[in-house]
Design a protein around this nucleic acid. Sequence first.
DNA 1: TTTTGAGTTGTTCGA
DNA 2: GTCGAACAACTCAAA
Length: 454
Amino acid sequence: MTSTRSLFWFRRDLRLADNPALLAALANSDAVLPLFIIDEEIAERAGEYRRAYLADSLRALDQSLGGKLAVIAGPAVSVLQDVMKRHDLSEVYVAQEFAPYGIARDLAVTKAGIELQQTGSGYAVSPGRVRKPDGTNYRVYTPFFRSWLTHGWRGPVAAPKNPNFITPKEADRNFPKWHPPAGVDLQEAGEVAALARWQAYKKGGLAEYDQARNIPGIAGTSRLSPHLRWGEIHPRTILAELNQSSANEVFRKEIAWREFYADVLHHYPTTSREYYSPVYETMRYDKPGSKFTAWCEGKTGYPIVDAGMRQLRAEGWMHNRVRMVVASFLVKDLHIEWQHGANHFMKYLIDNDVASNSHGWQWTAGCGTDASPYYRVFNPVEQGKRFDPNGDYVRHFLPELSHLSSAEIHEPWNFLDGYLHDYPERIVDHATERLESLARLQEIKAAKPEAPKF
DNA sequence: TTTTGAGTTGTTCGA
DNA sequence: GTCGAACAACTCAAA
């Protein structure tokens, strides 16, 4: 019998535990070369934050593999062809990808004559699997969630035992030397860190998740999003350990939101960039200019908005409640199209998942899968007072407001010393822009019905 | 087919 | 300050 040598191509599944595709590679081969391909086009586009996180995650993965991870930069097709030839590898094992870029890349690989052995995906239920009784996909979250629960998923599988990995040549171990910008502290990457974070959160914050998740000033969320984005932990691993308590149920629903948005993007692949509700494309918007710059820099004059935008630059991450507030502000107070905000987020976020990002933005912009009958316009002052009542979050990211009391901090314009330390004046008046946004909505609502002539 | 009920995350207004 | 209704008649799922 001839020995079979295969390639395992790591992409968005940078882990050994609960990785059925990796198990399939090892089960069907005598030896497996683990490889990660650096896509230089993406690396160029990605910000320093994302790149630094990936570099950290690759180092962690290599450590788990006993120093046997090959890392090669270049176009996927030519790297695969070259590596397979040089190492005499006959099969390529992967987990299926569903984001537009991954789909296009894998299609190019397949068209070049390289067959991909696909097992599993980064979701408990792969996109496209949850269907209504009539076979069509869901467009509303709650019915999707119920159907997703009914569908169910397999349990987690253990990491491979005594795997026979091929040792790559030093020349094939080109780990990127990417670092975060000076003064930026990213959370630790890698499978070990992901599992440790999950276990600590399960023992600690999870029991209060339903209450604490909306308060950005405390560590009430799990911060597992970057780990899920890179597949350092699989959602199955998390779901298998959740119970029926209300806090666990809310957390399970957040996992399901990730799966819902992946499913929606799967069925409507252009919605990563285009309007899910096309009528919103006809709305009047303002071109991004100095106000957009102020938003990016956290200098809008609205404390909760500015604190969020500065957290993004400080940590490559932003609290979910605040993501909604800053997104609503960009679209409904500054009248700037959601794609500009989504691009900015993708550049900075270490959890940059295109499905969750684009559809999270579209939900807030009003053009997404929100089933609400009314047009939500977040009030940045009310949101600040309600979810950051002590001002802890604002104070942490806006030192120029740290002298203000919790009663003053969300409305510095009402207090004599509000601008003592050069905090910017408000760039717009929220009440005015809210009405402007509603007026622009009326324009498209009025234009939409094309009445028959007779 | 037609009908009925439900819909993540909100805000404002007036009692 | 608190609380319920209105928002606007919508879209979608499911029976």
